[in-house]
């Protein structure tokens, strides 16, 4: 417990120092400031994962609705350009031409979800289910480890930063009694 208190103290100290620096001239930032930062304790290495999916842009709205059913509401999405092993699109070369015309990069949608480790499998299955056409270019899913997450408003760390509080849920119009989703409970019973 004392370790936790020390660490909180350090965070306070760090915040104070940064605030002071921000009031000062912008050119006076000292690199020593960062030494105040303490590394997160081991118990914060709760299993958080980032699931990054690169999918066809037109499938995104379906995917969003499907993933919402898993009660994974939060996401970040970007329009990106990309290509896979096929190097974009290529049409067959016309007679006499050395190369066919082609498209080097295809528009894709990249979405990132941060979830608890227990939800990864369900999420991945949901993404595959909604995006599989069997044609080349369906996209990829990457699962990455996440060390920590912080909710800026309340300074909650780890899984707490992802969980939606009861008050906020009332705004959303959804009620939830347990933190596990119905589908999760179903999966664990099997």
């Amino acid at each position: 417990m004392s370790g936790q208190r020390n660490e909180r103290l350090d965070e306070e100290k760090l915040r104070l120092a940064i605030r002071q620096e921000m009031g000062a001239q912008p050119s006076s930032v000292r690199p020593g400031l960062l030494r105040l930062w303490s590394s997160p304790p081991a118990d914060r290495a709760i299993q958080l994962k980032e699931v990054v999916a690169i999918i066809r842009p037109q499938r995104w709205s379906h995917t969003k609705l499907r993933v919402q059913r898993l009660r994974v509401q939060a996401f970040t999405q970007t329009r990106v350009l990309g290509r896979g092993r096929e190097r974009g699109l290529r049409y067959l070369p016309r007679r006499g031409a050395a190369h066919g015309m082609g498209v080097r990069y295809l528009p894709k949608r990249m979405i990132s979800w941060i979830v608890e480790a227990a939800q990864v499998e369900l999420l991945v299955n949901a993404i595959i289910e909604t995006n599989q056409t069997g044609q080349l270019g369906d996209g990829k899913i990457f699962v990455l480890p996440v060390e920590d997450a912080v909710r800026i408003r309340t300074n909650e760390h780890g899984v707490e930063a992802l969980r939606t509080e009861a008050a906020f849920e009332m705004v959303l119009g959804t009620t939830r009694t347990s933190t596990t989703t119905p589908e999760l409970e179903h999966a664990s019973r099997q």
């Binding site: 994962k49 999916a53 999918i55 990864v120 991945v124 993404i127 595959i128 995006n131 599989q132 056409t133 069997g134 044609q135 080349l136 270019g137 369906d138 996209g139 990829k140 899913i141 990457f142 699962v143 990455l144 480890p145």
Partner: peptide, 16 residues
């Protein structure tokens, strides 16, 4: 550079 734990191809649904 960061580590990736799993990669899935959506077309096949298989883990790479």
């Amino acid at each position: 550079i960061s580590s990736v734990e799993a990669v899935y191809t959506i077309r096949t649904g298989q883990k790479v």
